[in-house]
Nucleic acid binder design. Structure first.
Lengths: 177, 177, 177, 177
DNA sequence: GATGAATGAGGCTTCATTCAT
DNA sequence: TATGAATGAAGCCTCATTCAT
């Protein structure tokens, strides 16, 4: 299998899924990639395998992992998350794929598990990393931080620049309550 | 048309859509409601009309409207929003429908417009209502507040009670930055 | 059953069938007549019974019968037929219904028999009445006469007035060959 | 696409449409052709595209065109038309398709236009070709000629051989009036 | 006599997938 | 590796018909 062709299909799929949702027919992806429909099945096994691959990579898990693995703590950790989010979800495409993936997790167990893993395991470690201890209260604070980020990802604001958004988020994240 | 039958179909549709996404076939809804597939079309015109109706009512627009129309301001307004959100999205069903609807807005213009209306118009009025003026910074603060709420709606936390979640959110909302 | 309602439905059906063909849904006829769909079934038994009734009356059998029963012969008989045709098929509605009925006879045995009866029995008597004897040659001449009439019925000419059309037809019918 | 399969479907469609009318379900055509229903859509785009193709080719336009393009005039032109008609509509199948197409033209604009084009443009040229000038009277004579042919096409006579029918038609066509 | 809610059969079409080339 | 013809399952919707009122 040609690595080049595989990437060509993946990029076409991301564009098409971001435009039409994961229910977009393979026909559209094949046209966008300039290959035969059946080649997609040949490369990925089934449509679902293609969807899963793109869905999982659209989630923010990798950002949290990266920031945590750098050993950052407190404000630096929060800042790393915020920056990472803003970067990953700077394009319309990535934002739309994230929303689609959230919806996928509603009825697809595999994606749901990945989301749940993030929401329980990772958030606990972030609570400890950012606020010093993994208490329910601090978990909520992390979730609120993520909420602000998610809201940004779901619908990029037009009223504020990413810089301003990040600044305010950092202040809120660091706010003594 | 019987109001009772209409409501029976609507409830079945909410349950089925929350379980399988808006792509669930009418067949499932008909079975859940105990009516013939064609009756759903007879009542709603088309599947899309049914989806739209349920999608629009799943959005949080009504909560913001209600709190704003009560003339609340500052912390009271924030509290009203937070309580309203938590109540509306207390069930798995309503949370899942919200996610599905967000995904719908990715490629469906009509739903997208409703979401956009909320994100621009309503958020501006909330910024003024809660923080006193409609500045970019305050809009971001409202979005963060909503982010926290949305994150709650998207994935109800298991680590914290709704009460705790609401408390922390209120503190963050009122946090001086 | 009210005679008035029955006629109201029949007229609505003629209009709708002439516009949309016999496949027009009962819904359209009900709307045109201003009654409930189910009332049509109540009056006629089934859609097919309504179609049959309108289809049979749209055929030219009655004209030939009438002219023959008057005891006319030769040119007078031909003239009677021609006048009768032109009158019966003077409206767009009646012309269109005739075409539809011809098509119906393709696959519907009952209508096909009616058409066949006309084409064998009646034409023989006309050959004798108009040209003096029922020979194959004279049958063809009658058929040609009918062909000219049918062609008029199928597609009313814009280039010639009914008067001119009738005149020429009479001349051709009376032409010595 | 395989030319062979395409023709296989076309022939099956002609047979089925001639038996059941253009409303015959694709299911029947697929069975007759020995292919899957969806293959028909794959080859023709939609059922309507298939119907249109068969409907247009069932009309007698090509015969008139051919005779006119040979530069024939007078009796030779009439004879060419008569022969062409009798040949094209020698089979039950082609005759039935013609009737169906006439009915189609009642409510379908596209087919109606094709019929109208034939009835105005072509008939004028035939009037001139056969009778020397394009006057209303001569147009009616052509229409009568066509009427005789159409009547033959709509319902092949059992009382007379094609030879006799053609002979009489030629005489009538050439008859001085 | 008349209505309208309700049904179930069936039509067209779309789509993921397979298979021979 | 890559194609494209071909399939069959399934979806939405329309329609004639029935039945309780």
């Amino acid at each position: 299998m040609s690595e080049e062709t595989l990437e060509k299909i993946l990029e076409a799929a991301r564009r098409v899924f971001a435009r039409h949702g994961y229910d977009a027919p393979l026909r559209l992806i094949a046209a966008e990639a300039g290959v035969a429909k059946s080649l997609i099945v040949w490369y990925f096994g089934s449509k679902w395998d293609l969807v899963r691959r793109i869905a999982l990579e659209s989630l923010p898990g990798d950002i949290a992992q990266r920031c945590l693995s750098q050993g950052l703590r407190g404000d630096s950790l929060a800042r790393c998350l915020i920056q990472g989010f803003m970067e990953k979800y700077s394009s319309d495409e990535s934002r739309r794929l994230l929303v689609e993936t959230m919806a996928l997790s509603v009825w697809n167990e595999e994606v749901a598990e990945e989301v749940a893993r993030f929401c329980s395991d990772v958030i606990g470690r972030l609570a400890e990393g950012i606020y010093g201890s993994d208490t329910p209260e601090n978990r909520v604070r992390v979730r609120i931080l993520f909420g602000g980020l998610m809201c940004y990802a779901l619908n990029k604001p037009k009223c504020a620049s990413p810089q301003l958004y990040a600044e305010v988020l950092e202040k809120v994240a660091g706010c003594q309550i």
